[in-house]
Amino acid sequence: MTTPHAAPLLDIRDLRVSFPTDDGLVHAVNGMDLRLSRGETVGIVGESGSGKTVTSQALMGLLKDTSAVVTGQILLDGQDLNALTEAQMRAYRGKKIAMIFQDPLSAMHPFYPVGVQIAEAYRVHNTVTRKAAAAAAVDMLGRVGIPDPRRRYDAYPHEFSGGMRQRAMIAMALVCEPELLIADEPTTALDVTVQAQILDLLSELQAETGTAVIMVTHDLGVVAEVCHQVVVMYGGLCVERATVADLFKEPRHPYTQGLLDSMPSLTGTGERLRPIPGFPPSLLALPEGCLFADRCPHTGLVPDGACHTRRPELAGPGTHPSRCHLTRPQPAREVAR
């Protein structure tokens, strides 16, 4: 699936985003690195305020023409998207990068039929007649598993069920066959049986089209189901990057370990959960040292209190780096999952 030596499709280098507010500068993303090959799925995991959604907005160029300050490089096929103007970026949006959102009801225009909205996405990047665009939309509706697509073309978003709406949203995103699909919590608002259908659909379509997928989610279960690689974000920083197998088998960063420990599991024995104490740092005033130091159980193992004074780099083995002063945090976690 991943061709090891080929240039990656997407290469994010030291992405930083901050927003000026009345209370001061909010440092939403403080150093994000990510590499993604064609046909691959990477998960960006984090809790609220971790910067995962802002990262995805920066990738789509949605922060252009706003007060946000975005630095770093977002290389798509070698082209730095962050250096493009809003007008230049337009050629990429929908064509090379597409996005689906958490709440498909509010993400679709309530006044236009679903099919019309998909056809519109097609016509933006293809010089075709209305009729041909409509045909492409009907075809796409069929491919995402909407029964009787010709008739459903004229239905409005509010006439669809939640699952069908998300299918239509996926159709809208994939109608121009983008190379990269950003899915921002695509199943969070859905019921679990519908979530399973949508995740299956995404995997099937990905196998068909070879689109690379960035799955932004708070749910490690979703990551385990569909991703190849994972990036864990905390306080706007990428704190750990690994293949899915490695992350669950041997989580390196204490935050990742804490996240896994605090999740109740269907197969668990009902033992007491171990939550992460405390709260994430304020993005207005980031601590000087490691952003997780205040909540970390292992700071005592690092000499000279470095955790509180020096921010660790993303380091370690190439396939599994983490941002922690302990190269191999102790104690090793027992795998009960």
Partner: peptide, 24 residues
């Protein structure tokens, strides 16, 4: 319902999955 819950274990056996079709 239980089969649809994503399992936070990439190595879990996913062969016997049950997928409900259609809408509520």
């Amino acid at each position: 319902l239980l089969s649809a819950v994503p399992k936070a274990d990439p190595a879990a056996d996913r062969s016997g999955r049950i997928r409900l079709t259609g809408d509520l």
